[in-house]
Amino acid sequence: MSTIGYESWAVDLAEVGPIYPFQGWEIAMVIVGVLFWLGWHRIQFKRESEHLERAKRRARDHADIMSNIERY
């Protein structure tokens, strides 16, 4: 058994197509990939909102804001 469908290279390469593992599962793999991508956005949106909320509360110190403006 081989995950790529070939257990040896005793073949004519003119007759060989895909050589990646788990051929036939392409759609399932793409679904997993898309879920990873969308999940990334979900987590990042949530974390950035929380971060900006904390930063807003911290930024209320007028002297700190002035100092950062001066730093350019």
């Binding site: 058994m1 081989s2 995950t3 790529i4 070939y6 257990e7 040896s8 290279w9 005793a10 593992p21």
Partner: peptide, 12 residues
Amino acid sequence: FVLWGAPSSPFE
């Protein structure tokens, strides 16, 4: 694990 059983080489 992912490449389990695939040939490591073209040699017998």
